[in-house]
Amino acid sequence: MQVFIRTLLTAGSALALMGTSSFAEELCKGFGPQTPRDISMKDGTNHRVFNLAPEASSMNLCNIHTHTNAEHKGPGFSISAGTGEHGGFKCNETDSLTAAELAMPTGGHNEEAFHGVKPGDTIEVHWVYSSCDVQPGKGLGACLSNSCANPQLRVESQVFLVVNDPKAANFMDFAYMGNAVNGFQQPKSLPAGTGTPVVFAGSTTGPSYTEATCSPLQVTWSVHPQCAKLDINSLNAWAKEDKVFEEDHSHGVRQLVTAQELLAPIQ
């Protein structure tokens, strides 16, 4: 989940946002469970308790954004992409794509394309939900308001392997485009068929955070364990048509949190 420090400050929030270290004394102290994590590993010794957020259908969608390479590690995305802001994990099928799947879209990356993503890349998409009565918009600031500065937050996460193939998943099926259901702002749908999501307590993510510089925000995560192929042309269409989020590029990643003291146990 992307870090939006300036947006939060601009929104007047009272929330103060907070290389993985191998030295325990360098770990941040006093913070709740952190994210991202290896969702196959259920252990954790951070027992800071907060109530898990309601199901996504009972909350307002407030933001959609992507990270290039998966921030989490899971059964379907376990190939290391290295460290740093552009590290993370790749889908397991990355090396088995065809030449056609890897071909650049007609016209390549023009000014209307979603920047920072090409066929063959892995992306992790975050649908962010808030308990506040808000409308979807740019950054995490869209998830709170002057009358609701400490919302419950939930992120639905799906990792995609981006291909040039119209038969792959269409991102516009998961777009917002002004959709509302039972009074809640909602995407048109969420991905399905990629395994039962792993639900756990965590935090916000993004490259500004490490195991030494932690996020104080409390987030309920729901991460699908398998990748799905996604048509890059539909991702470009989303950037062009679902303008409310002002997303025109894919963001960096926070490195995997491995210290047990910073992870909540997964039930």
Score class of each variant (00 low, 15 high):
residue 32 G to M: 03
residue 238 W to Y: 13
residue 2 Q to S: 09
residue 172 M to R: 08
residue 73 K to S: 13
residue 143 C to M: 03
residue 262 L to T: 02
residue 4 F to N: 14
residue 119 P to F: 05
residue 217 L to Q: 12
residue 144 L to M: 08
residue 118 K to P: 00
residue 82 G to C: 11
residue 217 L to N: 04
residue 23 F to M: 07
residue 187 P to C: 06
residue 175 A to P: 04
residue 265 P to Q: 02
residue 93 E to T: 14
residue 249 H to T: 15
residue 263 L to C: 07
residue 144 L to I: 10
residue 241 E to T: 13
residue 58 S to V: 09
residue 4 F to Y: 09
residue 227 C to S: 08
residue 232 I to K: 05
residue 79 I to R: 07
residue 180 A to T: 15
residue 244 V to W: 01
residue 110 N to G: 10
residue 186 Q to F: 04
residue 23 F to C: 01
residue 24 A to V: 11
residue 110 N to D: 13
residue 46 N to K: 12
residue 197 P to D: 04
residue 176 Y to Q: 04
residue 157 S to D: 01
residue 153 L to P: 13
residue 65 H to Q: 14
residue 125 V to F: 04
residue 122 T to K: 02
residue 115 H to F: 12
residue 188 K to W: 08
residue 41 M to Y: 14
residue 86 H to C: 02
residue 74 G to D: 05
residue 44 G to Y: 08
residue 98 T to V: 09
residue 177 M to A: 05
residue 186 Q to M: 05
residue 206 G to Y: 01
residue 114 F to W: 06
residue 137 G to A: 01
residue 156 E to G: 07
residue 5 I to M: 04
residue 72 H to N: 15
residue 199 V to P: 02
residue 232 I to T: 02
residue 258 T to D: 10
residue 124 E to Y: 07
residue 88 G to F: 04
residue 209 Y to P: 01
residue 52 L to N: 13
residue 208 S to R: 02
residue 21 S to Q: 06
residue 245 F to R: 11
residue 238 W to D: 06
residue 154 R to A: 01
residue 112 E to K: 14
residue 92 N to G: 03
residue 32 G to D: 06
residue 38 D to I: 10
residue 222 S to T: 06
residue 242 D to E: 05
residue 74 G to S: 11
residue 115 H to M: 12
residue 114 F to D: 01
residue 136 P to D: 04
residue 138 K to W: 03
residue 141 G to K: 02
residue 166 P to R: 02
residue 126 H to S: 14
residue 220 T to F: 00
residue 84 G to Q: 11
residue 125 V to Q: 07
residue 70 A to P: 08
residue 6 R to A: 11
residue 159 V to Y: 01
residue 70 A to M: 08
residue 158 Q to N: 11
residue 234 S to Y: 08
residue 99 A to T: 15
residue 90 K to G: 02
residue 199 V to A: 06
residue 251 H to K: 15
residue 185 Q to N: 14
residue 142 A to F: 08
residue 2 Q to H: 13
residue 115 H to G: 11
residue 30 G to C: 05
residue 162 V to D: 00
residue 258 T to H: 08
residue 59 M to K: 10
residue 207 P to Q: 01
residue 16 A to Q: 09
residue 94 T to W: 09
residue 23 F to V: 13
residue 56 A to K: 10
residue 103 A to C: 06
residue 9 L to H: 07
residue 12 G to T: 04
residue 59 M to S: 10
residue 126 H to I: 00
residue 89 F to H: 06
residue 207 P to F: 02
residue 16 A to W: 01
residue 50 F to K: 12
residue 240 K to W: 05
residue 78 S to C: 11
residue 6 R to Q: 08
residue 230 L to K: 12
residue 39 I to F: 07
residue 89 F to Y: 12
residue 231 D to I: 10
residue 234 S to R: 08
residue 203 S to G: 06
residue 105 P to N: 00
residue 160 F to A: 08
residue 65 H to S: 15
residue 123 I to N: 03
residue 100 A to C: 09
residue 147 S to M: 07
residue 180 A to K: 15
residue 111 E to S: 15
residue 64 I to R: 06
residue 97 L to N: 04
residue 252 G to S: 10
residue 184 F to Y: 14
residue 266 I to D: 02
residue 1 M to T: 15
residue 35 T to F: 10
residue 79 I to S: 04
residue 91 C to W: 02
residue 213 T to P: 03
residue 25 E to S: 12
residue 210 T to N: 05
residue 226 Q to P: 03
residue 225 P to Q: 01
residue 60 N to L: 04
